[in-house]
């Protein structure tokens, strides 16, 4: 059994799926982020003034890019894997000799590719509004990929447990979006009262956004090593948990 062929089959299928429906998957973040940059960055941002030594619009660009990556990597895997369950074509995979880790890697990679494509589109749009020169390319790229991987894994777990299309909307609406907005996309946590600064530190998205911001513009509210450690730990734990769910067939077998 050639696992690499099975892996690329899943990845190709996933990429073909979201590119086929690009007006639903690629176009909306382009429009939304253009509005963010125009309203928050230009119109309001000019009155806020600089943060951490950079203009407000330059400050929010990394957070807006990563927020798009988070939501779209998550959305890709949760909607695709849940649809696969819903239409029962998950059975095509379960009957075949594809190992569980290849199934997981294939779906997560599909989410990462969508994250990269959406992140790329948003980055291009941001260049029309902001003056970004990448401070640490390697750190930016690694944080970008790790964040997309982490939220693809989270989307996979959500899809495994989901019993209806409502279940795949709950986490993005009530958990991901609030955590992203409160993760310092539009502000520095140093601007918050002390108690809220401490509370913000339990939000893992804060670390990823700040690590990415450090990579792009060299400004951060948190320790970069700690950010990598937290992201890495989450990826390991979620990967192991996803493999456990696949092995037991939870949510996909009876």
């Amino acid at each position: 059994m050639n696992n690499s062929i099975a892996f690329w089959t899943i990845v190709t299928k996933e990429v073909r799926r979201f590119t086929r429906i690009w007006p639903q998957t690629i176009l909306p973040p382009a429009i939304t982020t253009s509005l963010y940059f125009l309203i928050f960055g230009k119109l309001i941002g000019d009155r806020i003034g600089p943060i951490g030594g950079v203009s407000y619009i330059d400050y929010i660009v990394p957070g807006v890019i990563l927020m798009s990556v988070i939501s779209h990597a998550y959305a890709n895997v949760v909607s695709s894997f849940y649809s696969t369950k819903f239409q029962r074509n998950i059975e095509e995979l379960l009957v075949s000799p594809v190992p569980n880790w290849v199934i997981l890697a294939g779906y997560v990679s599909g989410g990462v590719v969508r994250g990269i494509m959406v992140g790329g589109v948003v980055t291009i749009i941001s260049l029309m509004f902001a003056d970004i020169s990448i401070a640490h390319f390697g750190i930016s790229a690694v944080v970008f990929i790790l964040t997309a991987t982490l939220f693809s894994l989270a989307g996979f777990i959500n899809a495994v447990f989901a019993d209806s299309f409502d279940d795949i909307a709950i986490i993005p609406s009530f958990v991901l979006t609030p955590l992203s907005y409160l993760g310092g996309v539009f502000y520095s946590v140093a601007m918050l009262p002390e108690i809220w600064q401490k509370i913000s530190l339990v939000n893992p998205i804060l670390y990823m956004i700040n690590a990415f911001r450090y990579g792009l513009i060299g400004v951060t509210d948190v320790d970069i090593k700690l950010a990598f450690l937290i992201t890495g730990c989450f990826i390991v734990v979620l990967s192991l948990f996803s493999l456990y769910l696949l092995k037991k067939g939870i949510g996909i077998k009876t």
Binding site: I5, A6, W8, T9, P97
Partner: peptide
């Protein structure tokens, strides 16, 4: 594509 994808799951090259 339905048939080709299934072949891929069994490790059959493109």
């Amino acid at each position: 594509h339905i048939v080709q994808i299934q072949a891929g799951y069994y490790g059959i090259g493109q």
